[in-house]
Design a protein around this nucleic acid. Structure first.
Length: 155
DNA sequence: CCAGGCTTGGAGG
DNA sequence: CCTCCAAGCCTGG
């Protein structure tokens, strides 16, 4: 089976995704949409509905490179919370600047929630547009997209 | 080897 | 409070 590509709407942006089953290869924000679908959980997330992003995997966390370790640490940040570049750095044993560089090159935003990593003094950055980061954090802070503890018993 | 990159903490005005 | 500056770590070219 080949890798699928597709996009879904997110406010003024379109989220392009390259994926296969539960493995995500690439995610990027763009102005235009493209044909094709995206993973169910990403679709739910972009629609502002509860989504279980943890059920997806990202190629970014594979391997034992420093960046992979950083991406894994970032994935561990709970929905609705934020951590500073410096804190992530301490966790994986590297420098804040390296964390910033890793976030700047994150191949799969959202799946690896780089928007939850902020500067000690403020928002920190986010490409292609800092506004996206602010919207994502606001959305999560309200709890709209944060998945219930598990699946389960009720709902 | 070298230039950056979504940082940070300290010095100085 | 604000600007400036260097230390620090990693990856791609």
């Amino acid at each position: 089976m080949a890798i699928l590509t597709g996009s879904c709407r997110f406010g003024l942006w379109h989220v392009h995704v390259a994926w296969q089953d539960d493995l995500v290869y690439r995610v990027r924000f763009a102005r235009e949409s493209i044909a094709g679908s995206v993973p169910e959980e990403i679709l739910r997330y972009c629609a502002g509905r509860p989504a279980d992003l943890a059920s997806l995997r990202s190629v970014a966390t594979e391997g034992d490179s420093t960046f992979a370790g950083i991406y894994r640490a970032v994935r561990a940040i709970p929905c609705g919370e934020t951590v500073t570049y410096g804190e992530v750095a301490r966790i994986v044993g590297t420098a804040p600047r390296a964390v910033g560089a890793a976030m700047a090159r994150n191949p799969t935003p959202i799946v690896v929630p780089c928007h939850r990593v902020v500067a000690k003094t403020g928002m920190g950055g986010f490409s292609p547009d800092l506004a996206i980061k602010e919207i994502l954090l606001e959305m999560e802070r309200r709890g709209d997209v944060c998945a219930p503890e598990k699946r389960g018993i009720n709902r």
